[in-house]
């Protein structure tokens, strides 16, 4: 119930006086109520929970996170993390392409 994934807003429309939107999840289109994200623009990504967009993904913050990670990965690569022997890759096939309900 609580797993929301980000979808890209492709269209805004009105339904019974409510702001609604169509969102694209890698090709699958779904609708959501946009009343709680009044400032959202087409092209932005929203988190949808049980038919309602509850938050807009903040591009700038995401970018900051990626930069932090790039540093972390660099540090790890320098110290040779690959020989760390963590069995992380085992779950990969399962993880790939998986979309949470």
């Amino acid at each position: 119930m609580c797993l929301a994934i980000p979808g890209k807003l492709i269209e805004i429309y009105d339904e019974a006086g409510m702001k609604m939107g169509k969102l694209d999840y890698a090709g699958t289109i779904n609708t959501a109520c946009l009343e709680y994200v009044p400032d959202i623009r087409v092209g932005q990504y929203a988190l949808v929970h049980a038919g309602f967009a509850i938050g807009v993904v903040d591009e700038e913050e995401a970018q900051k996170t990626y930069e932090l990670w790039a540093e972390l990965e660099k540090a790890a690569a320098e110290e040779g993390t690959d020989i760390f022997g963590m069995p992380l890759d085992t779950g990969d096939e399962e993880r790939e392409g998986e979309v949470s309900p």
Partner: peptide, 8 residues
């Protein structure tokens, strides 16, 4: 990335 965080 997950691996790098695990290491940390």
């Amino acid at each position: 990335l997950a691996k790098a965080i695990v290491r940390e």
